[in-house]
Every structure is written in C-alpha cells, then in structure tokens.
Amino acid sequence: MADQLTEEQIAEFKEAFSLFDKDGDGTITTKELGTVMRSLGQNPTEAELQDMINEVDADGNGTIDFPEFLTMMARKMKDTDSEEEIREAFRVFDKDGNGYISAAELRHVMTNLGEKLTDEEVDEMIREADIDGDGQVNYEEFVQMMTAK
C-alpha cells in the first residue's frame, strides 16, 4: 500500500514521523504519540494510545517504525480525509473560533508540534493556502489545501 505514495508524500511523512519521534530513535512510543496528540489539544487515554499503536504495529514490538507509519498514512489517505476530520483539524488551528486561521494561530500550532518556523515560513504557508488574498485561511481554503492532490 505504501508503494502507491509519491516521493514527495514519503518525504512529508518522514518529516511528520520525526515530529512524533521525539528522541530520534526511529520508533514512536505511546508516550511520544501522547505528547504530540496533547500538543494538538487531544486528550487520549493510555489505552487509546496503545490501541492506536497496536493498529499499525505490524511486528508487534509495541512501537511504530517508519515503514509501519507509512502504511498507516497510506491507509488513512485511501479513506481520504472525511469532512469531519478536516473540520476537526481546522478547529485545532482556529484557536479563537472566528472561522479563520491567522498567521499567529498557525505559528502557535506548529510551535506546539515542535516545528520552529520563521515568520517568513509561516507567512508563506498562509499565502499558499490563501486563495482570496485576505491574509488568513478560511474553512473553504483549508479544505482545498487539505484535499489538493
């Protein structure tokens, strides 16, 4: 299944994987998964984290390695993001709930994920998604960005 991913997608997933893999040992533990999910405003229980890991832990060693992570991402993409997942993601970014993602809100979430971005990089990300040019990202623009192939 992971063989249907483009090189660009694999590179993006590698970057995402390293955000989860806090200690850089090449595997994601339940603790690391929990840290990232909490930084995104989720509050999973230990059991939920274990279930999430077990779902993709092909070799049964209790952690997720990069090939397992790729399989999980490929699977998720095949079920292409349901509207509800996209709306949920939008809410994570839209901290003040005004229906727009500002540069400050984007920077806040990315920083929580451990991504240190310059102001230019954040502005560039907003510009790429900002179709109507108002300097922020509304829900429609967010959907376009998330579903762009």
Rank of each mutant, 00 (worst) to 15 (best):
H108I: 13
E8G: 12
L70P: 00
A11C: 09
T147A: 12
Q50D: 04
E115G: 10
R107N: 00
D119L: 08
M73T: 14
R75L: 15
D59N: 12
E121D: 12
T27S: 11
L117Q: 07
Q50W: 07
L106V: 02
G60F: 07
N112D: 14
D119G: 12
V122E: 04
A47K: 09
D3W: 05
M72W: 11
G24D: 12
E15T: 03
D79P: 09
D123Y: 11
F13K: 00
Q4A: 04
E140V: 10
K76C: 15
I64Y: 13
M73H: 10
N61A: 14
K116L: 14
T71I: 13
D59P: 07
E88H: 05
L33P: 10
G24H: 06
M37P: 02
R75C: 02
E121K: 08
V92G: 09
D134H: 01
Q50A: 05
G26K: 09
F93Q: 07
T80H: 07
K14Q: 08
E128Q: 01
L33H: 07
D132T: 03
E46L: 09
F20W: 14
A104D: 01
G41L: 06
M72H: 07
M37D: 08
A74W: 06
E84M: 01
E7C: 06
L40D: 05
R75Q: 07
T29R: 04
S39I: 12
R38D: 00
A103T: 13
N54Y: 13
D132F: 14
E46D: 09
V137C: 13
Q4W: 00
E141K: 06
D119E: 14
M145W: 08
R87A: 15
T63A: 11
T35Y: 01
N43E: 04
E48W: 14
E85V: 09
E68M: 07
H108S: 12
M52G: 14
T63N: 05
M77S: 14
F90N: 15
R91W: 03
G135L: 01
E141I: 05
L40C: 05
M37K: 11
E7Q: 11
D57E: 13
A16D: 04
I53N: 04
I131Y: 11
T147K: 08
T118V: 12
I64R: 05
K22T: 09
E48K: 07
L5E: 08
T45W: 07
V143L: 12
E32T: 04
E55G: 13
E15R: 03
E88V: 11
M1T: 09
G99A: 05
V143K: 15
D65V: 13
V56G: 13
G133W: 00
E124A: 13
Y100R: 10
A103C: 00
E46N: 00
K14M: 06
E115P: 14
E8A: 05
F93G: 06
D132W: 04
A47C: 05
T63E: 03
M77W: 09
E83P: 02
Y100D: 13
M146N: 01
Q4T: 04
A103G: 10
V56W: 05
S39E: 03
K95T: 04
K116F: 02
Q42V: 01
T45D: 00
R87G: 05
L70T: 01
K76S: 08
K31N: 11
I53H: 15
Q136E: 12
A47S: 12
A47G: 11
E120S: 14
T63P: 13
F93S: 01
G24P: 03
E46G: 12
V122M: 14
R107W: 04
S102A: 05
E85N: 10
Y100T: 02
E55Q: 10
A148G: 08
F93R: 04
M145T: 12
Q144E: 15
A103D: 11
L33V: 07
I28H: 04
N138L: 02
A16E: 02
A47L: 07
K95C: 15
R127Y: 03
P44C: 07
K149P: 12
L19V: 14
M110A: 12
S102V: 02
A11F: 07
T147V: 15
A11T: 13
M77N: 04
M125D: 05
S102C: 14
D51M: 05
Q9N: 00
M77A: 15
E12V: 08
M145S: 05
E8K: 07
I86P: 09
M77L: 12
I28M: 15
S39P: 13
V109H: 12
A89D: 00
N112A: 03
L5G: 06
K95D: 01
D51H: 02
T45Q: 15
T29K: 14
N98K: 14
D132Y: 08
D94W: 02
A47E: 14
G34A: 04
I131N: 14
D23V: 12
G41V: 10
I126H: 09
D81F: 06
E120Y: 13
E120P: 15
E141L: 00
G62S: 12
A129E: 03
A2I: 05
Q50F: 06
A2Y: 04
S18C: 07
D132K: 07
A148N: 09
A58M: 03
D79A: 13
L40A: 15
T30A: 13
K95M: 03
D57Y: 11
R91Y: 15
D59K: 08
D119H: 09
I131T: 13
F13S: 11
H108L: 12
Y139Q: 01
F90T: 06
I101N: 01
Q50S: 08
T80A: 14
M37A: 15
L19S: 06
F69A: 04
N43R: 15
T80Q: 11
F93Y: 11
D51I: 08
I10V: 11
F66I: 06
D79K: 09
D81L: 05
K78F: 00
V36G: 09
S82A: 15
I64F: 13
L49H: 15
A11V: 13
Q4N: 15
A103F: 02
